[in-house]
Simulated assay, not measured.
Amino acid sequence: MDWSADGYILSSRKHGETSAIIEVFTREKGRHPGLVRGGTGRRMRPVLQPGNRVTVDWHGRLEEHLGYYTLEAIDSRSAELMDDRLSLAGLNALCIMTRDLLPEREAYPPLHDVFSIVVSQLDNPDVWPALYVRWEAGLLAALGYGLDLSTCAATGGSENLTHVSPRSGRAVCTEAAAPYGDKMLRLPGFMRGEGQATPEDIWDGLRLTGYFLETRVQWEVNRTLPEARATMIERLTSEGFAANPQ
């Protein structure tokens, strides 16, 4: 059972004296682990950093085996962003969220495509936070918990959709949401393709996707969201790219 693909390093950990077990996110095979012989050596350590794009060849006797990788670097995104704490926090959150929330060895091509776009834009802080929120919304959809932002859950209309019901994950218009006050989650317009995202919008978007990731996805496995996501939000907030409206 051999295959080849391009993908992104999600994580790497030492195995034995000189090897490493890595997880790679590919379009065709999803999140897939494998052994890299010599992965802790001086030549390979820089290649196996999270966020780097690589070409991998996986070899294993059976599909369910760990198997081993041979690989070559395509780019070193982690090194390019090393001096940018904000962008590096975004890269770490993206990789760790993918590693921790996606099941192994299941392909999610659209999610992988958005992942690639976010990685490519991480040096542009005016753009990537909104893309990241969209990626988390795609993550929810890929896992079977997609938000329905097309029409109001109460009226069926498509105008003035400003909130999301925490119970159903459906959009709610301003009038229908008013009686429920802060119980509703704010829906930023950029998530429906309406206008540019403000810092308040980024905060609302992260709170929205985070709520459903926490209560739908992680609740089932009795886990919270990775600390790397909270670190990213702290960096975004401290540098003015996300702002708590409260």
Score class of each variant (00 low, 15 high):
Trp219Met: 14
Trp135Phe: 14
Gln121Ile: 00
Glu28Lys: 05
Leu10Ala: 06
Tyr108Lys: 03
Gly144Ile: 10
Phe241Gln: 02
Cys95Tyr: 02
Leu101Ile: 07
Thr155Asn: 06
His59Ala: 11
Trp58Lys: 14
Thr155Phe: 00
His59Asp: 06
Asp113Asn: 04
Thr231Lys: 09
Ile202Lys: 02
Ile9Phe: 06
Cys173Ala: 13
Leu35Phe: 11
Gly169Cys: 08
Glu64Thr: 10
Thr40Arg: 13
Pro33Trp: 04
Gly90Asn: 05
Leu206Thr: 01
Glu63Ser: 13
Arg37Cys: 01
Met1Val: 07
Ser168Tyr: 00
Glu23Arg: 11
Ser238Thr: 07
Met191Thr: 14
Ser76Met: 13
Thr237Met: 15
Val24Lys: 02
Gly138Tyr: 10
Tyr68Gly: 11
Pro50Cys: 06
Tyr68Pro: 00
Ser12Leu: 00
Leu94Ile: 07
Leu208His: 01
Tyr69Lys: 04
Ala228Pro: 08
Ala107Asn: 04
Gly156Asp: 07
Tyr69Trp: 11
Arg207His: 07
Ala107Tyr: 02
Leu86Glu: 06
Asn222His: 15
Glu28Arg: 13
Asp126Cys: 00
Leu147Met: 03
Asn222Ser: 12
Asp75Cys: 04
Pro46Cys: 07
Glu239Ile: 00
Arg223Val: 12
Tyr69Asp: 08
Tyr108Glu: 02
Ala141Ser: 14
Leu66Tyr: 03
Asp83Arg: 13
Thr174Tyr: 07
Thr162Tyr: 00
Leu66Gln: 06
Arg105Ala: 12
Leu122Thr: 07
Trp128Ala: 06
Pro46Ile: 05
Gly156Trp: 01
Ala243Ser: 13
Glu234Ala: 15
Asp2Phe: 00
Ser11Lys: 05
Asn222Met: 14
Leu213Arg: 03
Leu236Ile: 01
Ser120Cys: 09
Met97Trp: 04
Arg61Phe: 03
Leu71Ile: 12
Trp203Asn: 06
Asn160Lys: 14
Ala228Val: 10
Lys14Val: 09
Tyr132Ala: 09
Leu101Asn: 08
Arg134Met: 10
Gln49Pro: 09
Ala230Gly: 05
Leu35Asn: 04
Leu35Met: 15
Leu102Asn: 08
Arg167Asn: 00
Val56Ala: 13
Trp128Cys: 08
Arg43Tyr: 06
Pro125Lys: 03
His15Trp: 11
Ala243Arg: 15
Leu140Met: 03
Tyr8Glu: 07
Ala137Asn: 09
Glu234Gly: 04
Cys173Glu: 12
Gly41Ser: 15
Gly30Cys: 01
Val133Tyr: 01
Thr155Lys: 04
Phe190Pro: 01
Gly240Glu: 11
Ala89Leu: 07
Thr174Asp: 15
Gly41Arg: 11
Leu91Thr: 09
Ile22Glu: 05
Leu81Tyr: 08
Gly51Cys: 12
Glu234Pro: 01
His163Tyr: 05
Gly16Cys: 03
Leu236Tyr: 02
Pro33Ile: 04
Arg61Met: 10
Tyr180Arg: 06
Leu206Gly: 04
Trp135Leu: 13
Gly16Val: 05
Ala177Trp: 02
Leu71Cys: 13
Pro33Phe: 00
Asp113Leu: 13
Arg192Lys: 11
Glu28Gly: 11
Glu17Ile: 02
Ser238Asn: 10
Ser19Ile: 02
Ser120Pro: 07
Glu72Tyr: 12
Thr231Val: 15
Pro103Asp: 15
Thr231Trp: 04
Val118Lys: 10
Arg223Pro: 07
Ala154Asn: 02
Asp75Ile: 04
Arg170Tyr: 00
Gly240Gln: 09
Asp201Ala: 09
Leu102Cys: 08
Leu91His: 11
Leu131Lys: 05
Thr26Met: 06
